[in-house]
Design a protein around this nucleic acid. Structure first.
Lengths: 344, 344
DNA sequence: TTGTAAGCGTTATCAA
DNA sequence: TTGATAACGCTTACAA
C-alpha cells in the first residue's frame, strides 16, 4: 500500500511505538490514546506493510505448496482444502508447479524464502533438496509419500482399499487381470495400490507401465494390451484418468465395458461419475488431505507440536457399472443411494 | 533461510555493499573480489532474504490471483497458465479463493499487501474495493468481465461463438430451445453467450436460471424443465458442468440424448469428452487466458506499458454427439480428427 | 573499485 | 502509559 505507521503516528500525535501497541494490543495503551490512533488509522486507511511486519517478526504468515501439475482434479481438490484452512489460520498460499520446469531446485529454494512451511506432493522435490530444507528448519508436510524423518506425511489408505477392490472384481468371476500405472517407483501411493491388488490376485495380475498418469497414456497402454492375445478380463487402473483412457481404447476396439472387459479407476474425479459406463473407483478424501496438511503445518510452525506425525486417511470403494453388473445389489449400480448428488 | 549478507561479507573480507553488487551485477566489482564473494556465497549456501530484498526494492516479485472456487477445471486451467508464465518471469503466485468466505474484503486487501498486481475473475471482488485497489495503484487484470477503466481485461469471445452454436443447432431442425445458466448479471461472459444465442434464435429460446454453475444445479433446473409440458428440443447450457447435470436429468427421465433432446455445454472440460453422449461444446483457451494475464500484469508492473488493454481471444466450436447426428460430416462425430487426443 | 551509511516499514526492548 | 531506538536483511546513493 502506501501510508506508513509514521504518518499515522504523526496524525494521532503519538509515537510509532504507541501506534503499533494500539493496533496489535501488545502492551498498555490509554483508552483515549487508542481512540486517537484508531481514528487516524481509519482516516488514513492504514494497513501495516506485510514486508515490514514479516521482517520484524521473522515469519511470513504464508504457506507454500509444490505440485507436479494441476491438470487433473486430484491436486486441485487438495489445493482447495489446503488454501481454505490456511486462510482460516491467517496464512496465504504461494503455489509452485514443477511440471516441465528446469531448475526446480532454484524455484523451490525461492519459495522456501517466502513461506514458513510447505506442502509437497510425493517426490516432486529431489531428495537432497528435501534434506537441505529439513536442515534449514523449513516446516514440511508431504502428501502421498512414504514417511521420512523430519517432516509430516499424510496420505490416504491404499493397500487395504486396493485389496478390497481386487476382491470385489474377483467376486465377479474374472480371472485374468492387468494393472495399469506409471513406473511405480515414482509414486509411493501407486506402488501401494499395486501391492494391495497383487496380494489378493497373485499371479493372475500383471503390471503394465503407462508413462504418465494421463488419459492419453492410459489409452495407449490399454490399446496395446487389448490387442494382444490373452487379453485381460479386468483392468485395474492406478487412477481415474488412466481408466478413462482405457475406456476410450475399449470403445475404439469395439469392446463393450463391462460386457467384454471390466475397468476400474482411483480417486473418483468428476469425469468418473459422468463417463459411460460410469467408473468403479476408490474415492480419496482429497480436500480433507489438503485441510489436514494446512493444520499440520500450522502446528509445526507455531510450535504447538514438534514431533513429525504420519497420518493415513480412509478411502471409500465406489462401485459403479464399469466393473460388471451387480444384480443382487441393485439393478443399476450407477444410481445407488447417494449418487449422483452425495454431498462431499 | 538463515545466513545473511553480513556473514558472506565477513567471510569474503569485503563490505555488504560489495557482496550485493557482486551478486546482482549492479555496479563495478573487481574480478578477484567477485570470485571471493561467490566462493563465500557458495560455502555458506547463501540466498538473499526475499523480505530484505523486497523491502529495499519496494516490490514483491509476486502476483496474486482471486477466484471464486477451483472446483471446476476452468479456473484450474487458467491458474496453470498464469503460474507458468509468472514463474518464467520470476514472479511467485499467491492464491485466494473467495468461495464461502466472509470478510472477502480483508482477504483481498491482505493479498494486495503481498503482491505487485493481481488477476481477478469476474466479479469476485466487490466494486468499491476494486476502485480502491485502482486508486492504490495496484496493477489489475480481470478475466471474464466487461471492460472497466484503470485495469486490463481479458476474455474469450462469446457472442459470435454462441451465435454459431445456435445456428448449428437450428441446422439440426430444432425449434424449441432453452438456455440454462445462473443469474446472468453475475457473469458477464454468460450474459454474452445468452445475447449471442438469443440474437439468432429470438423468441424460440427461453432462459432458465440455475442458481450456480454446477452439475447439481444443472440437474435440478433441467429436470424441472423436462417435466413441464412443451419440453424444449435443445438445451444450451452456460457451461459444461450445467450440461452434465442436464444429461443426468435426461437419463433419469428416460429421455435419450440426442434422440429426444439435444444438450450443449461450454468450456470443453475433461468430463465433456468422456460423457456419453459426448458433449458438444465451445472450447475456451483457458490456459492461454492465464498466460496472457500473467504477461499483461508483468507489462503493467514493470512499466513496459501504462495504458490498460482489453483483449478477446477466439474460441472453437467442438461438435460431438450430444447435439444430434451429423450424417454427412462423419458417422461418429465423437471421433472426428484431432479427438480425443488433440494437443492443447 | 570499494566502503559507509541512509533508507525500506515494522516490532519490541528499555528508559523515562 | 509513552517514546527513543535498535534490530530485521537488504539496496543504493554518496564518499573515499
Amino acid at each position: 500500500m502506501d501510508v506508513t505507521i509514521y504518518e499515522v503516528a504523526q496524525r494521532a500525535g503519538v509515537s510509532i511505538a504507541t501506534v503499533s501497541r494500539a493496533l496489535r494490543g501488545t502492551g498498555p495503551v490509554a483508552a483515549r490514546t487508542r481512540e486517537k490512533v484508531l481514528k487516524a488509522v481509519e482516516e488514513l486507511n492504514f494497513t501495516p506493510s506485510h514486508l515490514g511486519v514479516s521482517l520484524a517478526e521473522g515469519r511470513h504468515a504464508a504457506n507454500g505448496i509444490v505440485f507436479p501439475d494441476l491438470a487433473g482434479p486430484y491436486y486441485t481438490e487438495v489445493l482447495l482444502g489446503y488454501e481454505e484452512v490456511a486462510s482460516e489460520l491467517g496464512r496465504s498460499v504461494v503455489i509452485l508447479s514443477t511440471k516441465g520446469r528446469s531448475r526446480v531446485n532454484d524455484l523451490v529454494k525461492d519459495l522456501a524464502g517466502r513461506v514458513d512451511g510447505m506442502l509437497i506432493f510425493g517426490h516432486t522435490v529431489p531428495e537432497p533438496l528435501v534434506a537441505e530444507l529439513v536442515l534449514l528448519r523449513m516446516r514440511l508436510v508431504f502428501i502421498s509419500r512414504d514417511p521420512l524423518t523430519g517432516a509430516d506425511t499424510l496420505r490416504s489408505e491404499n493397500r487395504a482399499s486396493a485389496g478390497a477392490l481386487a476382491e470385489h472384481l474377483a467376486g465377479h468371476g474374472y480371472e485374468r487381470f492387468a494393472f495399469l500405472g506409471a513406473p511405480m517407483a515414482s509414486q509411493d501411493d501407486v506402488d501401494e495400490r499395486w501391492q494391495g491388488v497383487r496380494a489378493v490376485l497373485g499371479g493372475a495380475i500383471e503390471a503394465v507401465d503407462t508413462r504418465h498418469y494421463t488419459v492419453e497414456c492410459g489409452f495407449e497402454a490399454a490399446r496395446g494390451l487389448l490387442k494382444g492375445r490373452r487379453r485381460p478380463e479386468a483392468i485395474i487402473c492406478s487412477d481415474d484418468e488412466v481408466a478413462l483412457g482405457a475406456l476410450l481404447a475399449a470403445e475404439e476396439l469395439g469392446l463393450s465395458v463391462p460386457g467384454d472387459l471390466a475397468v476400474t479407476g482411483w480417486d473418483d474425479i468428476m469425469a468418473a461419475r459422468h463417463a459411460r459406463p460410469a467408473l468403479t473407483t476408490v474415492r480419496q478424501p482429497m480436500r480433507e488431505l489438503g485441510a489436514r496438511a494446512a493444520r499440520a503445518l500450522d502446528e509445526l510452525i507455531t510450535g504447538a507440536r514438534h514431533l513429525p506425525r504420519h497420518q493415513s486417511l480412509p478411502t471409500e470403494l465406489v462401485i459403479r457399472s464399469s466393473c460388471g453388473h451387480h444384480p443382487e445389489t441393485s439393478p443399476n449400480p450407477d444410481r445407488r443411494a447417494g449418487d449422483p448428488f452425495r454431498p462431499r
